[in-house]
C-alpha cells in the first residue's frame, strides 16, 4: 500500500528490491528441491550401495553409498541361499495373469456400464462405487475364509483368481469409454457388427491410453501385492516376491543381520516397477491426479 503513495520515485528501488527477492526466492526454491530430492532419493542410493557391501562394511558405514570393498556376495547368496528365483517366478506368473485378467474383465464391465443399456445398470454401478470404498485390510480374514471353503487355499488359483478384477479398474474404464464419441460404434453396429465385435475391434483400439494406464496399475498393484498372498497361501513354494522378502526379514534366515542380502533382494524386487515408472511416468502421474485408488 505504501507503494501507491509515491510511485514514480519509488519505482526503480522497488524493481531492484524485487529482482533481489526473485533471486533469493529462486535460490531458496532450488535449495528446497535439492534437499527434498535427497530426502526422497538418498535411501535408494544407500540401498544400492549397501547391497554391494560386505556385512561389516554395511554395519560400519551405513550412510556411505560407496562399497569398500565392492562385492557381489550378497547377490550370490540371494540366488544360491534363498528361494529368490522361485519367488521371482511366482511373482511373474501372478502378475502376468492378474494384469491380463484385470485389463480384459475391467474393460468389458466398464464398457457395459458406460454404453450398453441393460436393466440393473445403475444399481451395478452404485455397487462398484461402494466396493471401491471397502478397505483391503479388513478383507484379510474374509478372503481366507472363502478360499478355505472353496478349497483354493494354498494354490496358484487362490493367489490369482481373487485379484482378476477390481472395482477401481472398472471405474477407470467406464469413465474413459464415456469420453469416446458414440458415433463410431453406431456406424459399426449399423454395418451389422455384433456388440462384442464392436467392442473388440472398434472401441478397444480407441481406448489405448486407458488400457495402458490400467495395465500399469494392475502390474504395479499385483507385483507389490502383499496382504493377499499372506492369507491365500502358506506353502513356501507358492510365495511371491513380497511374501518371500517379508519372510526373509522376519528372520527365517537366522544368523546375523545380513543387510546386504536383504537390501539386494528388496532392490531386485523394486527394479521392475522402477523401470515401468521411468518409462510410463505420465500414466502414473495421471492416475494420481484422477486419484483412482487400488480397490
Amino acid at each position: 500500500m505504501a507503494v501507491l503513495t509515491d510511485r514514480p520515485a519509488a519505482a526503480p528501488a522497488r524493481r531492484q528490491r524485487r529482482a533481489a527477492r526473485t533471486l533469493a526466492t529462486r535460490f531458496l526454491g532450488y535449495a528446497t528441491l535439492v534437499f527434498f530430492g535427497l530426502v526422497f532419493l538418498y535411501p535408494f542410493v544407500i540401498q544400492i550401495g549397501n547391497a554391494l557391501k560386505t556385512e561389516p562394511d554395511a554395519a560400519a558405514n551405513p550412510l556411505s553409498p560407496f562399497p569398500d570393498p565392492l562385492t557381489l556376495a550378497g547377490f550370490e547368496r540371494i540366488f544360491a541361499g534363498t528361494n529368490f528365483p522361485l519367488w521371482l517366478g511366482n511373482s511373474l506368473l501372478v502378475t502376468v495373469l492378474v494384469t491380463i485378467g484385470r485389463v480384459f474383465f475391467d474393460s468389458l464391465a466398464g464398457y457395459a456400464l458406460a454404453r450398453l443399456r441393460f436393466r440393473g445398470r445403475g444399481g451395478l454401478f452404485a455397487a462398484v462405487i461402494a466396493v471401491m470404498a471397502v478397505p483391503g485390510v479388513v478383507l484379510l480374514i474374509p478372503k481366507f475364509l472363502v478360499l478355505n471353503q472353496l478349497g483354493l487355499y494354498n494354490s496358484y488359483a487362490g493367489l490369482v483368481v481373487p485379484l482378476l478384477a477390481d472395482a477401481a479398474g472398472v471405474f477407470i474404464m467406464k469413465q474413459f469409454f464415456e469420453s469416446i464419441p458414440v458415433s463410431v460404434e453406431e456406424a459399426a453396429r449399423i454395418d451389422g457388427a455384433s456388440i462384442f465385435r464392436t467392442f473388440w475391434s472398434v472401441v478397444l483400439p480407441m481406448a489405448k491410453p486407458a488400457l495402458i494406464t490400467l495395465t500399469i496399475l494392475s502390474f504395479q498393484g499385483s507385483w507389490n501385492e502383499f496382504p493377499h498372498s499372506l492369507v491365500s497361501v502358506q506353502d513356501p513354494d507358492l510365495f511371491t516376491l513380497p511374501r518371500g522378502l517379508a519372510d526373509l526379514v522376519s528372520g527365517s534366515l537366522g544368523k546375523g543381520t545380513q543387510y546386504p542380502l536383504k537390501l539386494g533382494a528388496a532392490l531386485l524386487a523394486t527394479i521392475p516397477v522402477a523401470i515401468i515408472f521411468v518409462v510410463f511416468q505420465r500414466y502414473f502421474v495421471r492416475d494420481a491426479n484422477d486419484g483412482s485408488d487400488k480397490g
Partner: peptide
C-alpha cells in the same frame, strides 16, 4: 523432482520397509 518425490509411492511397501529397517 516431481518424479523423485513421487517414486517412493509406487514401490513395494515390503521392499521399502526392508530399506527403512536398515536405515
Amino acid at each position: 523432482f516431481r518424479s523423485a518425490f513421487y517414486f517412493p509411492s509406487v514401490t513395494s511397501s515390503v521392499a521399502i520397509s526392508v530399506v527403512f529397517l536398515f536405515l
